[in-house]
Design a protein around this nucleic acid. Structure first.
Lengths: 196, 196
DNA sequence: CGTCTATTTGAATGTACTCAAAAGCGGTGG
DNA sequence: CCACCGCTTTTGAGTACATTCAAATAGACG
């Protein structure tokens, strides 16, 4: 089996187990896509037609505010899912764009095929419920960080949580994630003298 | 059937349908609890043992930061679920406290009984998956608000989203939700002079 | 009523932003 | 392979949004 499918199966089998027939059916619903660095999977305003499981590289989802500033909702390195849930479930134009931070590969499944999957193998409801629970916890923690921490502390928190991302990401992207301007992040990093 | 159970069933039946036997089994897993205003369901540091469906009144979940400030993660009026997901799924002491904003009633189900429910009626996996999807979208939108809007705009956004809550909540609670000090919220509201 | 908490108001302060310009860096084409 | 272009990062000065601390006032509850 190719490595993409293997990674995806590993991921699923942490939550549910599948027999060979189910594996084949499941994998058959996905389509392999490759993105070059900075290439888009979806633009803001489009209808999101499905969700993506990243098998190499790294994607991001972000919104652009009325002043043209980008705010990053999620990074999705290898082994993570990414989509615009609001557009996907609501069947409305998305407020998010999704693009590749670096050259990436992903397995894509359409909304319709997700529904098919749930009908055919209802155990997947469980799998995605568990994923969503973890995802929810992550967003709740991040929201609390944003409510209670200073920019410095949020940066430290980001480094703790995503030690590998911090290596490979341009500072500007980190700034757009933790919620500061790139200028201020630069100043922070070059004036480490700080107590409190 | 009493009104509490009726509300809960209505809620579930927006996502899945149940036969009479299933209804009875489902409702049998819940325990009715009543809270007075400011009474706690859970304190920070406790292990959360289940989740609550609010049938009257309003609860809130919040974290207290190192300076003693409260940051509200969620309000749960009638018809909403509330828990500390991180403590519940991770079986670890919670960072959140949950208490009643006003006199409230709720139906409580333990984690063990949730598992029982999923085993016995797997369709509930779907119900809660759908709930979690909506919940995730809500947190994503709120996070984007916090990243891109000023305090004024976040207040306006809160009013739009929760027009009924704004009536009944003390200002201090609203401040702890949108992420400003009570003093600043007061100043904002008394200086409506503002264009932009 | 009296107490406790929430709200208001003011002055001083701080964290983070804006605008501007220079410097660094990476990729691409000649 | 080097030069150039565009984007990211750095640095600085001025500013703004929001906080802190303090004290007065108002409301709610028993």
């Amino acid at each position: 089996m190719e490595k993409h499918h293997e990674l995806l199966l590993q991921h699923v089998q942490r939550n549910i187990s599948l027999d060979p027939g189910e594996e084949t059916f499941f994998l058959g619903l996905f389509q392999l896509k490759k993105l070059k660095a900075r290439q888009f999977l979806y633009y803001e305003g489009e209808l999101h037609k499905g969700q993506a499981f990243v098998t190499s590289g790294c994607l991001r989802s972000y919104a652009t505010d009325q002043n043209g500033f980008e705010h990053i909702l999620q990074f999705a390195p290898k082994g993570w899912w990414i989509t615009d849930m609001q557009s996907l479930t609501g069947q409305q134009p998305g407020k998010l764009s999704i693009d590749a931070v670096e050259a990436s590969e992903l397995l894509f499944i359409s909304r319709a095929d997700m529904e098919l999957l749930y009908e055919r193998i209802p155990r997947f409801e469980r799998h995605f419920r568990l994923l969503l629970e973890r995802s929810l916890i992550t967003y709740q923690n991040r929201l609390l960080d944003n409510l209670s921490l200073t920019a410095r502390e949020r940066y430290a928190s980001f480094c703790r949580r995503y030690p590998s991302l911090i290596q490979s990401l341009p500072q500007k992207q980190v700034a757009a994630y933790i919620g500061v301007t790139p200028e201020f992040l630069s100043k922070m990093l070059n004036q480490p003298r700080h107590q409190k």
